[in-house]
Nucleic acid binder design. Structure first.
Lengths: 220, 220
DNA sequence: ATACAATATGACCGAGTAGTCATGTGACCA
DNA sequence: TGGTCACATGACTACTCGGTCATATTGTAT
Protein backbone atom coordinates (compact mmCIF):
# COMPACT_ATOMS: atom_id res chain seq x y z
CA UNK A 1 0.00 0.00 0.00
CA UNK A 2 1.24 3.50 -0.78
CA UNK A 3 2.56 5.52 2.14
CA UNK A 4 0.51 8.22 3.81
CA UNK A 5 2.50 10.92 2.03
CA UNK A 6 0.95 9.86 -1.25
CA UNK A 7 -2.58 10.27 0.07
CA UNK A 8 -1.62 13.65 1.50
CA UNK A 9 -0.92 14.84 -2.01
CA UNK A 10 -3.45 17.07 -3.78
CA UNK A 11 -6.03 14.95 -5.59
CA UNK A 12 -4.98 16.11 -9.03
CA UNK A 13 -1.36 15.24 -8.39
CA UNK A 14 -2.35 11.78 -7.24
CA UNK A 15 -4.42 11.35 -10.38
CA UNK A 16 -1.58 12.63 -12.55
CA UNK A 17 0.87 10.12 -11.13
CA UNK A 18 -1.66 7.33 -11.55
CA UNK A 19 -2.29 8.33 -15.15
CA UNK A 20 1.37 8.41 -16.04
CA UNK A 21 2.01 5.12 -14.27
CA UNK A 22 -0.89 3.53 -16.03
CA UNK A 23 0.43 4.65 -19.40
CA UNK A 24 3.83 3.23 -18.60
CA UNK A 25 2.47 -0.12 -17.50
CA UNK A 26 0.14 -0.27 -20.46
CA UNK A 27 2.83 0.65 -22.93
CA UNK A 28 5.66 -1.56 -21.78
CA UNK A 29 4.09 -4.22 -19.62
CA UNK A 30 4.69 -4.74 -15.93
CA UNK A 31 8.16 -6.18 -16.04
CA UNK A 32 9.64 -3.57 -18.35
CA UNK A 33 7.86 -0.59 -16.85
CA UNK A 34 10.41 1.91 -15.59
CA UNK A 35 10.07 4.01 -12.49
CA UNK A 36 12.62 6.46 -13.87
CA UNK A 37 10.31 7.02 -16.84
CA UNK A 38 7.30 7.45 -14.61
CA UNK A 39 8.84 10.04 -12.34
CA UNK A 40 10.27 11.88 -15.30
CA UNK A 41 6.97 12.05 -17.14
CA UNK A 42 5.02 12.87 -14.02
CA UNK A 43 7.43 15.71 -13.30
CA UNK A 44 8.29 14.59 -9.80
CA UNK A 45 11.65 13.79 -8.30
CA UNK A 46 12.91 10.26 -7.97
CA UNK A 47 13.16 10.68 -4.23
CA UNK A 48 9.56 11.80 -4.01
CA UNK A 49 8.39 8.62 -5.63
CA UNK A 50 9.98 6.62 -2.86
CA UNK A 51 8.26 8.76 -0.32
CA UNK A 52 4.96 7.82 -1.89
CA UNK A 53 5.46 4.16 -2.72
CA UNK A 54 7.58 1.27 -1.56
CA UNK A 55 8.47 0.19 -5.06
CA UNK A 56 7.03 -0.71 -8.43
CA UNK A 57 4.96 -3.52 -7.06
CA UNK A 58 3.43 -1.22 -4.49
CA UNK A 59 2.49 1.26 -7.18
CA UNK A 60 0.99 -1.38 -9.42
CA UNK A 61 -1.06 -2.92 -6.66
CA UNK A 62 -2.40 0.52 -5.85
CA UNK A 63 -3.59 0.87 -9.44
CA UNK A 64 -5.20 -2.54 -9.34
CA UNK A 65 -6.95 -1.62 -6.12
CA UNK A 66 -8.20 1.58 -7.66
CA UNK A 67 -9.71 -0.38 -10.51
CA UNK A 68 -11.45 -2.90 -8.32
CA UNK A 69 -12.74 -0.10 -6.10
CA UNK A 70 -14.13 1.61 -9.13
CA UNK A 71 -15.64 -1.59 -10.40
CA UNK A 72 -17.33 -2.34 -7.13
CA UNK A 73 -18.68 1.17 -6.93
CA UNK A 74 -20.02 0.82 -10.44
CA UNK A 75 -21.72 -2.50 -9.88
CA UNK A 76 -22.98 -1.69 -6.42
CA UNK A 77 -26.26 -0.10 -7.45
CA UNK A 78 -27.05 -2.41 -10.30
CA UNK A 79 -27.47 -5.84 -8.84
CA UNK A 80 -28.45 -8.64 -11.14
CA UNK A 81 -32.04 -7.99 -12.14
CA UNK A 82 -33.33 -10.88 -10.06
CA UNK A 83 -31.41 -13.39 -7.96
CA UNK A 84 -33.83 -16.12 -8.89
CA UNK A 85 -33.38 -15.50 -12.56
CA UNK A 86 -32.40 -18.13 -15.08
CA UNK A 87 -28.70 -18.90 -15.23
CA UNK A 88 -28.33 -17.99 -18.87
CA UNK A 89 -30.14 -14.71 -18.50
CA UNK A 90 -27.83 -14.01 -15.60
CA UNK A 91 -24.83 -14.80 -17.72
CA UNK A 92 -26.03 -12.48 -20.44
CA UNK A 93 -26.63 -9.76 -17.92
CA UNK A 94 -23.10 -10.15 -16.60
CA UNK A 95 -21.81 -9.76 -20.06
CA UNK A 96 -23.72 -6.68 -20.86
CA UNK A 97 -22.90 -5.05 -17.57
CA UNK A 98 -19.26 -5.83 -18.13
CA UNK A 99 -19.38 -4.31 -21.58
CA UNK A 100 -21.18 -1.24 -20.42
CA UNK A 101 -18.63 -0.80 -17.69
CA UNK A 102 -15.72 -1.25 -20.05
CA UNK A 103 -17.25 1.16 -22.53
CA UNK A 104 -18.22 3.84 -20.06
CA UNK A 105 -15.42 3.72 -17.60
CA UNK A 106 -12.30 5.57 -16.83
CA UNK A 107 -8.89 5.53 -18.44
CA UNK A 108 -7.75 3.73 -15.33
CA UNK A 109 -9.66 0.58 -16.06
CA UNK A 110 -8.99 0.81 -19.76
CA UNK A 111 -5.30 1.01 -19.11
CA UNK A 112 -5.15 -1.92 -16.74
CA UNK A 113 -7.05 -3.94 -19.31
CA UNK A 114 -4.55 -2.71 -21.82
CA UNK A 115 -1.76 -4.22 -19.78
CA UNK A 116 -3.42 -7.58 -19.98
CA UNK A 117 -4.77 -7.38 -23.51
CA UNK A 118 -1.73 -5.59 -24.83
CA UNK A 119 0.54 -8.40 -23.83
CA UNK A 120 -1.85 -10.87 -25.28
CA UNK A 121 -1.80 -8.95 -28.53
CA UNK A 122 1.96 -8.73 -28.47
CA UNK A 123 2.27 -12.45 -28.06
CA UNK A 124 -0.37 -12.90 -30.71
CA UNK A 125 1.80 -10.98 -33.15
CA UNK A 126 4.63 -13.37 -32.47
CA UNK A 127 2.68 -16.46 -33.30
CA UNK A 128 0.60 -14.99 -36.04
CA UNK A 129 1.43 -17.57 -38.68
CA UNK A 130 1.19 -20.54 -36.40
CA UNK A 131 -2.06 -19.39 -34.86
CA UNK A 132 -3.64 -18.40 -38.13
CA UNK A 133 -2.82 -21.77 -39.63
CA UNK A 134 -4.33 -23.50 -36.64
CA UNK A 135 -7.39 -21.28 -36.57
CA UNK A 136 -7.88 -21.72 -40.30
CA UNK A 137 -7.89 -25.46 -39.88
CA UNK A 138 -10.61 -25.27 -37.28
CA UNK A 139 -12.70 -22.86 -39.30
CA UNK A 140 -12.59 -25.14 -42.31
CA UNK A 141 -13.49 -28.07 -40.16
CA UNK A 142 -16.46 -26.21 -38.74
CA UNK A 143 -17.54 -25.03 -42.16
CA UNK A 144 -17.55 -28.54 -43.50
CA UNK A 145 -19.50 -29.67 -40.48
CA UNK A 146 -21.97 -26.87 -41.09
CA UNK A 147 -22.42 -27.81 -44.73
CA UNK A 148 -22.94 -31.40 -43.78
CA UNK A 149 -25.53 -30.31 -41.27
CA UNK A 150 -23.68 -31.55 -38.23
CA UNK A 151 -23.76 -28.25 -36.44
CA UNK A 152 -26.42 -25.66 -35.84
CA UNK A 153 -26.91 -23.07 -38.54
CA UNK A 154 -27.34 -20.33 -35.97
CA UNK A 155 -23.71 -20.55 -35.03
CA UNK A 156 -21.10 -18.63 -36.91
CA UNK A 157 -18.36 -21.13 -37.85
CA UNK A 158 -15.67 -18.64 -36.89
CA UNK A 159 -16.98 -18.25 -33.39
CA UNK A 160 -17.53 -21.97 -33.09
CA UNK A 161 -14.00 -22.63 -34.26
CA UNK A 162 -12.75 -20.21 -31.68
CA UNK A 163 -14.68 -21.94 -28.93
CA UNK A 164 -13.38 -25.34 -29.93
CA UNK A 165 -9.82 -24.18 -30.27
CA UNK A 166 -9.83 -22.29 -26.99
CA UNK A 167 -11.17 -25.20 -25.01
CA UNK A 168 -8.80 -27.62 -26.66
CA UNK A 169 -5.83 -25.42 -25.96
CA UNK A 170 -6.83 -24.82 -22.37
CA UNK A 171 -6.98 -28.50 -21.53
CA UNK A 172 -3.40 -28.29 -20.38
CA UNK A 173 -4.21 -25.28 -18.27
CA UNK A 174 -7.12 -27.06 -16.67
CA UNK A 175 -4.88 -29.93 -15.72
CA UNK A 176 -2.37 -27.57 -14.21
CA UNK A 177 -5.07 -25.78 -12.25
CA UNK A 178 -6.60 -28.99 -11.01
CA UNK A 179 -3.39 -29.97 -9.33
CA UNK A 180 -2.70 -26.51 -7.94
CA UNK A 181 0.51 -26.33 -9.84
CA UNK A 182 3.72 -25.80 -7.96
CA UNK A 183 7.28 -25.25 -8.97
CA UNK A 184 7.95 -28.77 -7.85
CA UNK A 185 5.61 -30.23 -10.41
CA UNK A 186 6.98 -27.91 -13.03
CA UNK A 187 10.46 -29.16 -12.43
CA UNK A 188 9.36 -32.73 -12.19
CA UNK A 189 7.77 -32.17 -15.54
CA UNK A 190 5.44 -35.12 -15.43
CA UNK A 191 1.85 -35.54 -14.53
CA UNK A 192 1.06 -39.07 -13.54
CA UNK A 193 -1.66 -38.60 -10.97
CA UNK A 194 -4.25 -38.29 -13.67
CA UNK A 195 -5.92 -41.60 -14.26
CA UNK A 196 -7.30 -42.28 -17.65
CA UNK A 197 -10.72 -42.50 -16.07
CA UNK A 198 -10.53 -38.93 -14.79
CA UNK A 199 -9.15 -37.81 -18.07
CA UNK A 200 -11.98 -39.43 -19.92
CA UNK A 201 -14.53 -37.72 -17.72
CA UNK A 202 -13.03 -34.32 -18.22
CA UNK A 203 -12.91 -34.76 -21.96
CA UNK A 204 -16.45 -36.12 -21.94
CA UNK A 205 -17.66 -33.12 -20.04
CA UNK A 206 -16.01 -30.60 -22.26
CA UNK A 207 -17.29 -32.31 -25.36
CA UNK A 208 -20.76 -32.51 -23.94
CA UNK A 209 -20.76 -28.79 -23.31
CA UNK A 210 -19.59 -28.10 -26.82
CA UNK A 211 -22.08 -30.47 -28.37
CA UNK A 212 -25.21 -29.91 -26.35
CA UNK A 213 -24.59 -26.77 -24.39
CA UNK A 214 -25.20 -26.29 -20.71
CA UNK A 215 -28.94 -25.87 -20.69
CA UNK A 216 -30.96 -28.74 -19.43
CA UNK A 217 -32.86 -30.46 -22.16
CA UNK A 218 -36.56 -30.53 -21.49
CA UNK A 219 -37.30 -32.95 -24.28
CA UNK A 220 -36.27 -36.60 -24.50
CA UNK B 1 16.16 -18.37 -36.56
CA UNK B 2 19.27 -19.34 -34.62
CA UNK B 3 22.54 -19.21 -36.54
CA UNK B 4 24.18 -22.33 -37.89
CA UNK B 5 26.71 -22.28 -35.07
CA UNK B 6 23.99 -23.15 -32.62
CA UNK B 7 22.94 -26.22 -34.55
CA UNK B 8 26.58 -27.23 -34.84
CA UNK B 9 26.69 -27.49 -31.06
CA UNK B 10 26.57 -30.93 -29.41
CA UNK B 11 22.99 -31.99 -28.82
CA UNK B 12 23.26 -31.92 -25.05
CA UNK B 13 24.63 -28.40 -25.06
CA UNK B 14 21.77 -27.26 -27.25
CA UNK B 15 19.30 -28.91 -24.86
CA UNK B 16 21.02 -27.35 -21.85
CA UNK B 17 20.75 -23.86 -23.29
CA UNK B 18 17.11 -24.44 -24.18
CA UNK B 19 16.36 -25.70 -20.69
CA UNK B 20 17.96 -22.74 -19.01
CA UNK B 21 16.26 -20.31 -21.37
CA UNK B 22 12.92 -21.94 -20.77
CA UNK B 23 13.35 -21.55 -17.02
CA UNK B 24 14.20 -17.91 -17.43
CA UNK B 25 11.24 -17.14 -19.68
CA UNK B 26 8.85 -19.13 -17.53
CA UNK B 27 10.05 -17.51 -14.34
CA UNK B 28 10.25 -13.88 -15.35
CA UNK B 29 8.17 -13.53 -18.48
CA UNK B 30 9.34 -12.50 -21.90
CA UNK B 31 10.04 -8.85 -21.27
CA UNK B 32 12.04 -9.32 -18.08
CA UNK B 33 13.91 -12.41 -19.15
CA UNK B 34 17.62 -11.65 -19.03
CA UNK B 35 20.18 -12.92 -21.48
CA UNK B 36 22.92 -12.28 -18.96
CA UNK B 37 21.19 -14.66 -16.58
CA UNK B 38 20.75 -17.28 -19.26
CA UNK B 39 24.38 -17.31 -20.36
CA UNK B 40 25.54 -17.30 -16.77
CA UNK B 41 23.35 -20.22 -15.77
CA UNK B 42 24.10 -22.13 -18.94
CA UNK B 43 27.79 -21.67 -18.33
CA UNK B 44 28.55 -20.14 -21.69
CA UNK B 45 30.17 -16.82 -22.54
CA UNK B 46 28.14 -13.80 -23.45
CA UNK B 47 29.84 -13.64 -26.79
CA UNK B 48 28.97 -17.22 -27.53
CA UNK B 49 25.30 -16.50 -27.10
CA UNK B 50 25.48 -13.92 -29.83
CA UNK B 51 27.18 -16.42 -32.06
CA UNK B 52 24.20 -18.72 -31.60
CA UNK B 53 21.28 -16.28 -31.65
CA UNK B 54 20.52 -12.85 -33.00
CA UNK B 55 18.88 -11.69 -29.80
CA UNK B 56 16.27 -12.56 -27.21
CA UNK B 57 13.47 -12.66 -29.73
CA UNK B 58 15.41 -15.07 -31.88
CA UNK B 59 15.95 -17.36 -28.93
CA UNK B 60 12.33 -17.24 -27.90
CA UNK B 61 11.09 -17.99 -31.39
CA UNK B 62 13.39 -20.97 -31.48
CA UNK B 63 11.77 -22.30 -28.32
CA UNK B 64 8.34 -21.77 -29.79
CA UNK B 65 9.37 -23.65 -32.90
CA UNK B 66 10.61 -26.50 -30.77
CA UNK B 67 7.21 -26.69 -29.11
CA UNK B 68 5.31 -26.78 -32.37
CA UNK B 69 7.72 -29.37 -33.73
CA UNK B 70 7.06 -31.44 -30.67
CA UNK B 71 3.34 -31.07 -31.08
CA UNK B 72 3.41 -32.03 -34.73
CA UNK B 73 5.58 -35.03 -33.96
CA UNK B 74 3.10 -36.05 -31.32
CA UNK B 75 0.09 -35.81 -33.59
CA UNK B 76 1.80 -37.10 -36.70
CA UNK B 77 1.11 -40.81 -36.49
CA UNK B 78 -2.41 -40.59 -35.22
CA UNK B 79 -4.58 -39.24 -37.98
CA UNK B 80 -8.30 -38.91 -37.45
CA UNK B 81 -9.92 -42.30 -37.87
CA UNK B 82 -12.15 -41.34 -40.76
CA UNK B 83 -12.48 -38.00 -42.54
CA UNK B 84 -16.14 -38.63 -43.33
CA UNK B 85 -17.01 -39.28 -39.71
CA UNK B 86 -19.44 -37.18 -37.69
CA UNK B 87 -17.98 -33.88 -36.60
CA UNK B 88 -18.35 -34.56 -32.92
CA UNK B 89 -16.76 -37.97 -33.12
CA UNK B 90 -13.91 -36.31 -34.90
CA UNK B 91 -13.78 -33.71 -32.20
CA UNK B 92 -13.69 -36.36 -29.55
CA UNK B 93 -10.68 -37.91 -31.19
CA UNK B 94 -8.94 -34.56 -31.31
CA UNK B 95 -9.70 -33.81 -27.68
CA UNK B 96 -8.42 -37.16 -26.54
CA UNK B 97 -5.23 -36.69 -28.48
CA UNK B 98 -4.99 -33.15 -27.16
CA UNK B 99 -5.54 -34.30 -23.64
CA UNK B 100 -2.93 -36.99 -23.91
CA UNK B 101 -0.52 -34.44 -25.24
CA UNK B 102 -1.37 -31.98 -22.49
CA UNK B 103 -0.94 -34.64 -19.84
CA UNK B 104 2.41 -35.68 -21.25
CA UNK B 105 3.48 -32.18 -21.99
CA UNK B 106 7.10 -31.31 -21.63
CA UNK B 107 8.66 -28.60 -19.55
CA UNK B 108 9.24 -26.83 -22.80
CA UNK B 109 5.58 -26.64 -23.63
CA UNK B 110 4.59 -25.82 -20.09
CA UNK B 111 6.94 -22.91 -19.93
CA UNK B 112 5.93 -21.46 -23.26
CA UNK B 113 2.26 -21.79 -22.34
CA UNK B 114 2.98 -20.01 -19.12
CA UNK B 115 4.60 -17.11 -20.88
CA UNK B 116 1.71 -16.85 -23.28
CA UNK B 117 -0.97 -17.10 -20.65
CA UNK B 118 0.23 -14.09 -18.72
CA UNK B 119 3.80 -13.08 -18.41
CA UNK B 120 5.00 -15.82 -16.19
CA UNK B 121 4.47 -16.79 -12.62
CA UNK B 122 4.82 -13.28 -11.36
CA UNK B 123 1.67 -11.90 -12.93
CA UNK B 124 -0.07 -15.07 -11.88
CA UNK B 125 0.86 -14.40 -8.27
CA UNK B 126 -0.38 -10.86 -8.49
CA UNK B 127 -3.87 -11.65 -9.60
CA UNK B 128 -4.08 -14.93 -7.79
CA UNK B 129 -6.76 -13.86 -5.37
CA UNK B 130 -8.76 -12.09 -8.01
CA UNK B 131 -8.61 -15.05 -10.34
CA UNK B 132 -9.40 -17.54 -7.64
CA UNK B 133 -12.31 -15.44 -6.48
CA UNK B 134 -13.56 -15.26 -10.03
CA UNK B 135 -13.22 -18.99 -10.56
CA UNK B 136 -14.92 -19.66 -7.24
CA UNK B 137 -17.75 -17.38 -8.21
CA UNK B 138 -18.33 -19.26 -11.42
CA UNK B 139 -18.27 -22.63 -9.71
CA UNK B 140 -20.85 -21.48 -7.17
CA UNK B 141 -22.95 -19.97 -9.87
CA UNK B 142 -22.88 -23.19 -11.82
CA UNK B 143 -23.66 -25.24 -8.74
CA UNK B 144 -26.67 -23.13 -7.92
CA UNK B 145 -27.80 -23.36 -11.51
CA UNK B 146 -27.39 -27.12 -11.36
CA UNK B 147 -29.42 -27.37 -8.16
CA UNK B 148 -32.14 -25.23 -9.62
CA UNK B 149 -32.16 -27.41 -12.69
CA UNK B 150 -31.10 -24.70 -15.11
CA UNK B 151 -28.19 -26.66 -16.46
CA UNK B 152 -27.83 -30.22 -17.52
CA UNK B 153 -27.10 -32.77 -14.81
CA UNK B 154 -24.61 -34.53 -17.04
CA UNK B 155 -22.21 -31.65 -16.71
CA UNK B 156 -19.74 -31.43 -13.86
CA UNK B 157 -20.03 -27.90 -12.47
CA UNK B 158 -16.27 -27.60 -12.10
CA UNK B 159 -15.61 -28.38 -15.73
CA UNK B 160 -18.53 -26.23 -16.81
CA UNK B 161 -17.28 -23.31 -14.74
CA UNK B 162 -13.87 -23.68 -16.25
CA UNK B 163 -15.30 -23.76 -19.76
CA UNK B 164 -17.45 -20.70 -19.16
CA UNK B 165 -14.65 -18.76 -17.56
CA UNK B 166 -12.11 -19.68 -20.20
CA UNK B 167 -14.37 -18.77 -23.07
CA UNK B 168 -15.48 -15.51 -21.52
CA UNK B 169 -11.97 -14.47 -20.63
CA UNK B 170 -10.58 -15.01 -24.06
CA UNK B 171 -13.57 -13.52 -25.81
CA UNK B 172 -12.17 -10.02 -25.54
CA UNK B 173 -9.00 -10.98 -27.33
CA UNK B 174 -10.97 -12.80 -29.98
CA UNK B 175 -13.07 -9.74 -30.68
CA UNK B 176 -9.95 -7.63 -30.86
CA UNK B 177 -8.37 -10.01 -33.32
CA UNK B 178 -11.49 -10.35 -35.42
CA UNK B 179 -11.58 -6.64 -35.96
CA UNK B 180 -7.84 -6.47 -36.45
CA UNK B 181 -7.54 -3.91 -33.68
CA UNK B 182 -3.97 -2.78 -33.38
CA UNK B 183 -2.06 -1.99 -30.24
CA UNK B 184 -2.04 1.67 -31.21
CA UNK B 185 -5.80 1.81 -31.20
CA UNK B 186 -5.79 0.31 -27.75
CA UNK B 187 -3.23 2.81 -26.58
CA UNK B 188 -5.46 5.63 -27.75
CA UNK B 189 -8.11 4.29 -25.47
CA UNK B 190 -10.71 3.87 -28.19
CA UNK B 191 -13.51 1.49 -27.40
CA UNK B 192 -15.51 1.48 -30.62
CA UNK B 193 -14.39 -2.08 -31.28
CA UNK B 194 -16.26 -3.08 -28.17
CA UNK B 195 -19.52 -1.40 -28.99
CA UNK B 196 -19.65 -2.47 -32.61
CA UNK B 197 -22.41 -4.61 -34.04
CA UNK B 198 -19.90 -7.33 -34.84
CA UNK B 199 -18.81 -7.55 -31.23
CA UNK B 200 -22.42 -7.90 -30.17
CA UNK B 201 -22.97 -10.73 -32.62
CA UNK B 202 -19.88 -12.55 -31.42
CA UNK B 203 -21.10 -12.35 -27.85
CA UNK B 204 -24.55 -13.56 -28.86
CA UNK B 205 -23.02 -16.45 -30.69
CA UNK B 206 -20.81 -17.43 -27.84
CA UNK B 207 -23.69 -17.35 -25.38
CA UNK B 208 -25.72 -19.43 -27.76
CA UNK B 209 -23.00 -22.03 -27.97
CA UNK B 210 -22.69 -22.17 -24.20
CA UNK B 211 -26.42 -22.54 -23.80
CA UNK B 212 -27.37 -24.85 -26.65
CA UNK B 213 -24.13 -26.34 -27.89
CA UNK B 214 -23.00 -26.74 -31.44
CA UNK B 215 -25.03 -29.72 -32.55
CA UNK B 216 -27.94 -29.09 -34.79
CA UNK B 217 -31.22 -29.57 -33.02
CA UNK B 218 -33.39 -32.13 -34.75
CA UNK B 219 -36.42 -31.45 -32.60
CA UNK B 220 -38.27 -28.32 -31.63
C1' DA C 1 54.37 -28.87 -38.55
C1' DT C 2 51.70 -25.22 -40.62
C1' DA C 3 48.11 -22.66 -42.08
C1' DC C 4 43.47 -21.44 -41.95
C1' DA C 5 38.80 -21.11 -40.69
C1' DA C 6 35.38 -21.84 -37.17
C1' DT C 7 34.25 -21.11 -32.66
C1' DA C 8 34.91 -19.63 -27.70
C1' DT C 9 35.78 -16.06 -24.52
C1' DG C 10 35.12 -12.35 -21.13
C1' DA C 11 36.64 -7.61 -20.52
C1' DC C 12 34.54 -3.73 -21.91
C1' DC C 13 31.10 -0.07 -23.46
C1' DG C 14 27.17 2.93 -23.18
C1' DA C 15 22.82 3.11 -21.54
C1' DG C 16 19.48 2.50 -18.34
C1' DT C 17 17.97 0.85 -13.85
C1' DA C 18 16.29 0.93 -8.63
C1' DG C 19 16.96 2.99 -4.69
C1' DT C 20 19.52 6.37 -1.18
C1' DC C 21 20.47 10.48 1.14
C1' DA C 22 22.27 15.01 2.33
C1' DT C 23 20.41 19.16 1.49
C1' DG C 24 16.75 22.46 0.45
C1' DT C 25 12.06 24.41 0.97
C1' DG C 26 7.94 25.92 2.93
C1' DA C 27 4.24 25.70 6.30
C1' DC C 28 2.95 26.00 10.93
C1' DC C 29 3.53 27.01 15.84
C1' DA C 30 5.73 29.38 19.91
C1' DT D 1 12.04 35.43 14.97
C1' DG D 2 13.45 31.10 15.50
C1' DG D 3 12.45 26.31 15.75
C1' DT D 4 10.36 22.16 14.12
C1' DC D 5 8.64 18.96 11.10
C1' DA D 6 6.81 17.05 6.75
C1' DC D 7 7.86 16.90 2.31
C1' DA D 8 10.78 17.82 -2.22
C1' DT D 9 14.82 17.30 -4.65
C1' DG D 10 18.27 15.37 -7.91
C1' DA D 11 23.01 14.06 -7.72
C1' DC D 12 24.82 9.90 -6.59
C1' DT D 13 25.88 4.81 -5.82
C1' DA D 14 25.89 0.41 -7.21
C1' DC D 15 24.09 -2.17 -9.86
C1' DT D 16 22.19 -5.05 -14.50
C1' DC D 17 21.30 -4.84 -19.05
C1' DG D 18 22.21 -5.92 -24.29
C1' DG D 19 25.69 -6.03 -27.31
C1' DT D 20 30.71 -5.74 -29.29
C1' DC D 21 35.25 -7.14 -30.29
C1' DA D 22 40.07 -8.20 -30.00
C1' DT D 23 42.10 -12.17 -28.62
C1' DA D 24 42.54 -17.08 -27.52
C1' DT D 25 41.42 -21.70 -28.50
C1' DT D 26 40.08 -25.23 -31.04
C1' DG D 27 39.51 -28.58 -35.19
C1' DT D 28 40.82 -29.76 -39.82
C1' DA D 29 43.18 -30.02 -44.13
C1' DT D 30 47.53 -29.89 -46.17
Amino acid sequence: MPKQTFFNLPEDKQRLIEEVAVDEFAGRGYAAASISQIVSRAGIAKGSFYQYFEDKHDLFMHLVNRVTEEKHAYFKDCRPPDPGIDFFANLRWMFEAGFAYAAAQSRLNQAVSRVLFGEGLFMGEMFKEARQASAQMFVEMLQQAAERGDIDANVDPTVAAFAVETLLNSLGLFILNQQAVSQEVLQQGRIDWLTSEQARQIVDNMLFVLEHGLRKKTDG
